[in-house]
Design a protein around this nucleic acid. Structure first.
Length: 465
DNA sequence: ATCGGCTCGCGCAA
DNA sequence: TGCGCGAAGCCGAT
């Protein structure tokens, strides 16, 4: 058989981390599931199956639960583990085996590959730094081919070879090729069934980890592929039609709330996009959702893939840092430490309730994510501190934190990432676009939101005697 | 209620 | 080299 680079020549979704000829005398094809934590509509799995058919071998999916993922508390671990529980059975319907282990991927994955005598290792694409480090470490420690399949974008990220400047620069490039990628991903079957099913139950495994349990499971987000699909259809049927009108309504939270499921790859963005485009709602509603799901989301993925400082102040655009530096000495009308912010103890009720919802629910409506970050920029001793604290709180509390979208949003809030300068120049934030209480009041019922969060988390109504 | 100006820089037309 | 226009704002003029 030819080398994997020849086999998958000109496939924009697939990159070769270690080239070579698949060995036919091995025992399986191995899929290392990282980000695409789903059994269906999964390009990485399909790639492994394609090779398995050529070699007439079974396919085994492996997952490595890492005991200390940076800045992850019990909250994301619980969501991830609950979703993983579905996978062995769901994969079995495609005749794929399952083996979960805990530890460091750089050690665990090569050892699993040796144990099961893998011919080729296929994995999916986590665009963040840690994903790349793990992949590189694994590729260094195996002596057979390894492929990375971009499984969580609509348009393969490799088609954009440089850091895009803004939505307006990536939009036409995406539009040009969108239709050829908006194609349903089939659920093929492995040619030979695998009966491998090893490893602990994910929820039991994470119970052994030393996690920060002060941030508990997100109460409103049941996890898993099935739940993701249920939510998608609920959104399409009940709310998509008004999305362009109501997207900013933080008081009713009119969004899809799919981002945790997309973050953990429990649903394919292509499946989401197809459900939207095939639905029977006004074009304006579809267009505004698709712009979020594809243009903005894939712009953020492009950003973290091409900017090594995506989660650092240094990664902000030059004009933004320059303007912020010129205002570094401006007096702050209010100034809060990380501790004061985390205690939701500012002078601003709306901000405090947003922080309260974030801490307790792991979630905020879109509109408030912007307001939340923009105020931290205004209230911090320096823009660098603002950036650091925003990343810290974002990644600690959001169920969908530690995501490319997180860093895109934080960069936009603090330093005008993917935005343009906005005069007139203001104290503290300079030319970075402001977003204050006026914008909130113009778009939703601020008092209704404050009251709802206060009743839910601060002074809940006590049951009558 | 709606509108222009504020300000920078990318990408395309020329 | 010039020019149009842009992640979701704000303020003041009409």
């Amino acid at each position: 058989m030819q080398s994997v680079s020849q086999w998958f020549d000109e496939e924009p979704r697939i990159s070769i981390l270690r080239d070579g000829q698949p060995q036919a005398d091995r025992d399986c094809l191995m899929v290392w599931i990282q980000r695409a934590q789903r059994a269906h509509a999964n390009p990485a799995i399909n790639t492994a199956i394609e090779l398995a058919r050529e070699l007439d071998l079974p396919v085994i999916a492996v997952f490595c639960l890492v005991p200390a993922f940076p800045s992850a508390t019990l909250r994301p671990y619980h969501f991830m583990a609950e979703g993983l529980q579905e996978l062995p059975d769901a994969l079995a319907t495609r005749k794929i085996g399952w083996h979960l282990e805990t530890g460091e991927p750089g050690k665990v994955i090569p050892s699993l590959a040796r144990k099961h005598r893998a011919s080729v290792l296929v994995t999916d694409l986590n665009p963040l730094r840690i994903g790349r480090q793990w992949r590189d470490r694994v590729a260094d420690r195996i002596d057979f081919p390894m492929l990375v399949v971009d499984s969580d974008t609509v348009v393969p990220s490799s088609l954009f070879t440089k850091e895009e400047y803004a939505a307006r620069t990536i939009r036409p490039k995406i539009q040009r090729v969108l239709n050829q990628h908006l194609v349903r991903i089939p659920d093929t079957h492995a040619p030979v069934a695998s009966d491998v099913r090893e490893g602990p139950e994910p929820l039991e495994a994470i119970a052994q980890f030393e996690l920060d349990t002060s941030v508990g499971p997100a109460p409103d987000f049941r996890s898993g592929e099935r739940e993701a699909r249920r939510r998608l259809h609920d959104f399409v049927v009940n709310r998509l039609g008004r999305y362009d009108q109501e997207r900013n309504r933080a008081d009713i939270d009119a969004g899809s709330q799919l981002s945790p499921y997309l973050h953990y790859g429990q649903i394919s963005p292509i499946e989401v996009a197809l459900a939207i485009t095939e639905s029977n709602v006004p074009a304006a509603a579809k267009d505004s959702f698709v712009d979020e799901l594809i243009i903005q989301r894939e712009l953020s993925i492009n950003f973290v893939l091409h900017n090594a400082d995506y989660d650092r102040y240094a990664g902000l655009p030059d004009w933004g840092r320059k303007s912020l530096a010129e205002h570094a000495g401006d007096p702050r009308e209010h100034e809060y430490t990380r501790g004061q912010l985390e205690a939701a103890g500012t002078h601003d009720d709306l901000w405090n309730m947003a922080m309260t919802q974030m801490i307790n629910e792991g979630w905020l409506p879109n509109r408030l994510r912007m307001y939340w970050g923009k105020q931290i920029a205004l209230w911090s001793a320096s823009p660098e501190t603002a950036f650091r604290n925003t990343v810290y709180l974002n990644d600690k509390y959001f169920l969908d934190g530690r995501d490319a979208n997180s860093y895109g949003n934080i960069g936009w809030c603090i330093g005008g990432r993917h935005d343009r300068p906005f005069g007139p120049e203001r104290p503290v934030t300079g030319l970075v676009r402001p977003m204050g209480m006026g914008a909130m009041k113009r778009t939703f019922d601020v008092n209704a939101y404050i009251t709802a969060i206060r009743e839910r988390w601060v002074s809940p109504r006590l049951p009558l005697e």
